[in-house]
Design a protein around this nucleic acid. Structure first.
Length: 352
DNA sequence: AATACGGGGGC
DNA sequence: GCCCCAGTATT
């Protein structure tokens, strides 16, 4: 392995291939933090507008801390991995409590914040504070496994260690840790891409061990693939003459925790209810109505998540007046302020 | 060490 | 369809 050559070529490539991004060149640790959380398992393009809107609504740690979790989730709506939103809100409060509202500089303190792991801590430490902490994300694993021809399971400690040893060595050849980290991730996103990289124009090709051994397409080693669990959701959207609806805040440790949804019946197999069964289900849940209950629409849809396959049906019901005295659900007239899973957001967009 | 956690884009 | 994305927390 030739770490010095790697660093030289990397930084040269970086200068020749600038990539505009809204948080580029910022030194405000708060904004860097926000951008890094948004970019966890998320493409730059997908997170771009979310970042702009987020820092406009929450320009400071304090403003974020003082917000409600619901509002933070509303800004995360559609982005996925909602624990990121809950955790950044929680962490903002911890910074107010434990650090007088000032983002900590110490790596150990940074990484102890909820939602911040090794990658994000290194990103903040280098971008905001200039510390020599190499970032290790998917790009970096791919690049280094190829350049050094490391054919190991990178989810294991042993494989990760080899990567980190190389990075630490490589980073020692520059004073600008931030530029190094920025460069290596851009290099992974634009040049050393997952499939069919154009090695013919790559500045590293002379010393890329995977290329020399014709192994680029086999590296990094494939992950064991995950099995998806099938779930069946039936959502009941009951709406009365005043436009009132019944919604629920998801509380369990499950997908979409903290987001809102309609009345849900989850079943082992597909539920094919008629109006009578629907009435029965509503009554069991203490939801009553005045006038006749009418079934106005049924929509079948499906969603693919990283670990689940959701088969859903959304049934629209009409009545004169909803009557609910329980505590599990809440009655809402305007749904604009609530964060919904994409599945429901798409439905509500056209049925609100 | 393995699994859960969203949603989207590229091929 | 399948892979993977500027990963982290929990089991």
């Amino acid at each position: 392995m030739e770490p010095k050559y790697f660093t030289q070529q990397l930084l040269k490539w970086h200068k020749a291939n600038p990539r505009p991004m809204p948080w580029l060149g910022l030194t405000d640790p708060y904004k860097i933090w926000v951008s890094e959380i948004i970019l966890q398992q998320t493409r730059v393009q997908q997170g771009w507008n979310y970042y702009l809107a987020f820092v406009e609504t929450f320009p400071t740690i304090q403003s974020l801390a003082e917000s409600s979790e619901d509002l933070v989730l509303k800004h995360w709506e559609g982005l996925g991995y909602y624990s990121r939103a809950r955790n950044i809100h929680k962490a903002a409060n911890q910074i107010m409590e434990n650090h007088a509202g000032v983002f900590p500089e110490d790596y150990e303190e940074i990484i102890s914040l909820p939602g911040i792991g090794p990658y994000t801590a290194a990103a903040i430490a280098s971008f905001a504070f200039g510390q020599k902490r190499p970032v290790v994300d998917g790009n970096v694993l791919r690049i280094v496994s190829r350049y050094c021809h490391i054919d190991e399971d990178l989810s294991k400690v042993k494989g990760k260690k080899k990567i980190l040893v190389f990075l630490t060595e490589a980073m020692s050849f520059t004073k600008d840790a931030a530029a190094f980290n920025q460069a290596i991730m851009n290099f992974g996103a634009l040049q050393c891409i997952p499939s069919n990289p154009n090695c013919g124009i790559c500045k590293m090709s002379k010393k890329c061990k995977a290329l020399l051994n014709d192994q680029v397409s086999y590296l990094p080693r494939a992950k064991t693939k995950i099995k998806k669990k099938k779930r069946y959701f039936t959502y009941l959207d009951i709406v009365d003459l005043q436009g009132n609806r019944v919604i629920n805040r998801r509380k369990e440790k499950d997908i979409w925790q903290g987001l809102y949804e309609l009345i849900l019946n989850e079943t082992e197999k597909e539920w094919k209810p008629n109006l009578e069964k629907i009435s029965g289900f509503l009554t069991e849940n203490e939801i009553h109505w005045k006038g006749t209950l009418g079934l106005s629409n049924r929509l079948k849809t499906r969603r693919i998540l990283s670990h689940q396959l959701i088969n859903a049906e959304i049934i629209t019901l009409r009545c004169d007046k909803i009557q609910y005295k329980g505590t599990k659900f809440q009655i809402a007239n305007r749904l604009k302020g609530f964060a919904f899973p994409k599945l429901l957001e798409l439905y509500l967009q056209t049925n609100l």
